[in-house]
Nucleic acid binder design. Structure first.
Lengths: 152, 152
DNA sequence: ACCTTGGATGTTATTTTATATCCTCTCTAG
DNA sequence: CTAGAGAGGATATAAAATAACATCCAAGGT
């Protein structure tokens, strides 16, 4: 089992289900299982890592099973994709529509989500200045986290 | 041949070669060909698109041929990877060490590189505040470019 | 209750992206 | 002249993602 977090996994699953329902979408058993696996993980998971874990409870799972669930969860803004890792992780805060900003530690592989309003707004404005209509922004910063840095 | 740009392709290749030499690296014929193909393209190219084009002048080219050249060019900061597209494009400005910031138009597929100091610094500080030692930052904004927006 | 219809999932196959491994060639520093 | 490193050749395979079609099932209208 993973480290302690702000809220329990069942509580987060339930509020995710409510958020989906509010938009007329259904957090089905499969989607709930996939989200639960991600919430239970200490770090980002690739689609195939997720598939391996999912198979423990759902033998018939194959890549499309996982990718469809991931697509749904991303549409519902319940998870993010970390592009540099081809991996996925839950949003830090369910339902709240924020741009994705990550700090990726190359030593330990952990990824922290941050939320920097200044940067987000600067990017929004920069896009506007070009007449560009932004839909979704991703920020990914590679480096070394505090813990790994001090260890070295 | 692609649209007109600030500087001629040969001039950009030569300054790239100089930048490499200054760091004790060699812009070999293969690497030069790959960079030339990218400079000659109107938009980002995937590794396999590049491979197809490269084969016109180098029949023996296979995936590792291209990926090795791409790795080298990225190390030398001559090109960027656009993570959301699994594609590559030249740096807007050779040699100058800037964070990668892209506007990706989902209609026309064009990618514009921007350079927003405010956002870059905000992110740097946000990382520092967490004790995170940033190495390289990527910003990718999906949306619709001005041209495509007005067409619609 | 009975359709029917669209969303969700099952199933098979394939495409796209990227890397591992080992070998050969060619410089160049000693 | 030769050892060693870096570049590239060659083969194979791994990893990530999607296409296409079949089936199931749940919700709403009648």
């Amino acid at each position: 089992m993973a480290a302690t977090r702000q809220r329990s996994i069942p509580a987060r699953l339930d509020s995710a289900a409510k958020a989906c329902a509010a938009r007329g979408a259904r957090l089905t058993e499969l989607r709930r299982q996939v989200l639960a696996l991600m919430l239970d993980s200490d770090g980002p998971l690739t689609a195939y890592q997720l598939l391996d874990r999912l198979r423990e409870m759902r033998e018939r799972a194959v890549p499309p099973t996982v990718y469809r669930a991931l697509d749904f969860l991303m549409e519902q803004r319940l998870i993010h994709k970390v592009e540099r890792l081809n991996a996925f992780m839950p949003c830090s805060d369910t339902g709240h529509d924020h741009p994705a900003q990550f700090l990726i530690c190359r030593q330990c592989g952990r990824v922290a989500e941050i939320e920097d309003r200044v940067a987000a707004e600067a990017l929004e404005h920069a896009a506007e200045r070009q007449g560009f209509h932004a839909r979704s922004a991703v920020v990914e910063i590679d480096g070394t986290c505090a813990a790994c840095f001090h260890r070295a």
